[in-house]
């Protein structure tokens, strides 16, 4: 009987067992170390096989169809159990002007010319010296759904400052710090640390001193045990593609 169950491993691998057989085999697999070992072996033996596939270009419109369906489905789910809509939760890649942002940018002492690369509806501020928001992305968090904010690259006199403004960030304890990272390929470059105030608002202005040759792929925020790490040691909480 035992032997017979072991013989079913490959049919289990190919999902060829009936419901009852499958349940019985799973129970068996749980207790049979031979089968567990063999299972690992088959995983390893088959691991390279997908790469035998001929390189085929998917239909150009597939991505839109698939992701629309995937996200539409999750929207339906959410609507079934209505959640309170939180104001600060940003939509990806959409510029969210906020009072906080306005206040901070004014404090830079320059008149600010903001525009969104996505929406292209420029908002003209007063003339004179002009800072340009070259790029701005929304940041949302992993665990704390209400937390969020924006990161903007502001060009002024050939220098670029990264301005990060976050709201409703979870409180930190001890030496914990939020640290911002510019991500290029698999490398992460530190771009300042901040600690939010009592009400969870935190901001940061970071003069980007890295060479302009860098092509940043993304911006990330991690929760670090200590400030000013060279590489993230804590968990990455937010990530937005640039």
């Amino acid at each position: 009987m035992e032997r017979k169950q072991c013989d079913q491993l490959l049919d289990y691998y190919n999902d060829q067992l009936t419901g009852e057989e499958k349940a019985a085999f799973e129970a068996h697999l749980h207790s049979c170390s031979d089968c567990q070992q063999e299972w690992q072996e088959w995983q390893a033996l088959t691991e390279p096989l997908p790469y035998l596939s001929e390189d085929i270009t998917p239909p150009a419109s597939m991505k839109k169809r698939v992701l629309t369906n995937v996200f539409a489905e999750s929207l339906d789910q959410k609507q079934e159990q209505p959640e309170q809509v939180t104001v600060l939760k940003p939509k990806p890649r959409r510029w969210l002007p906020s009072l906080l942002a306005a206040g901070l940018l004014l404090s830079l002492g320059a008149n600010v010319y903001l525009y969104s690369t996505k929406q292209t509806n420029d908002q003209q501020a007063a003339p004179q010296e002009v800072s340009k928001t070259a790029q701005s992305v929304a940041l949302g968090t992993v665990d704390q759904k209400e937390a969020g904010g924006t990161a903007s690259f502001i060009q002024e006199n050939q220098a670029t400052n990264l301005v990060v403004q976050m709201g409703k960030m979870p409180k930190l304890s001890g030496t914990q710090t939020y640290q911002v990272w510019l991500v290029e390929g698999d490398k992460k470059y530190p771009a300042g640390s901040f600690v939010p105030n009592e009400s969870g608002n935190g901001s940061l202005i970071y003069p980007i001193h890295y060479s302009s040759k860098h092509k940043w792929d993304a911006i990330a925020i991690s929760l670090e045990p200590k400030p000013h790490n060279k590489q993230p040691k804590g968990k990455i909480l937010m990530l937005s593609k640039l």
Binding site: P50, L52, S53, E54, D55, I56, T57, P58, M62, K63, V66, L67, V70, F71, S74, P92, R93, G140, T141, V142, D143, K145, L239, S240, K241
Partner: peptide, 24 residues
């Protein structure tokens, strides 16, 4: 954590491989 951009990035990375493999 419901980050759509992250799913999109995974999609971009694997679309071609998964499509080719599925097609096979």
């Amino acid at each position: 954590a419901d980050n759509k951009e992250a799913l999109e990035q995974l999609y971009d990375r694997y679309e071609k491989l998964l499509f080719s493999f599925s097609y096979k």
